[in-house]
């Protein structure tokens, strides 16, 4: 049962890490535009601008 000394704090640390990740994402405005974010994930990348034409 000594394993609890490692496992319980480990579990709590993981939980806290998740919580802080959530709070960080909230603060950085990732929940401000849920519709847009859904589309951005599948949008094409911007074509490289001012890139020299290839051949």
């Amino acid at each position: 049962m000594e394993i609890l000394v490692i496992l319980v704090p480990l579990a709590l640390m993981l939980g806290l890490a998740g919580l802080f990740a959530f709070l960080w994402s909230l603060r950085s405005g990732q929940y401000d535009d849920l519709d847009g974010a859904a589309w951005r994930a599948i949008a094409d990348d911007e074509p490289p601008q001012d890139a020299p034409a290839k051949r």
């Binding site: 579990a11 939980g15 806290l16 998740g18 919580l19 959530f22 909230l26």
Partner: peptide
């Protein structure tokens, strides 16, 4: 709405643990 989301995040974390 941000405050409520923060509360929900904290409550959900606590519930799971």
């Amino acid at each position: 709405s941000r405050f409520l989301l923060r509360c929900l995040g904290v409550a959900a974390f606590a519930t799971m643990n």
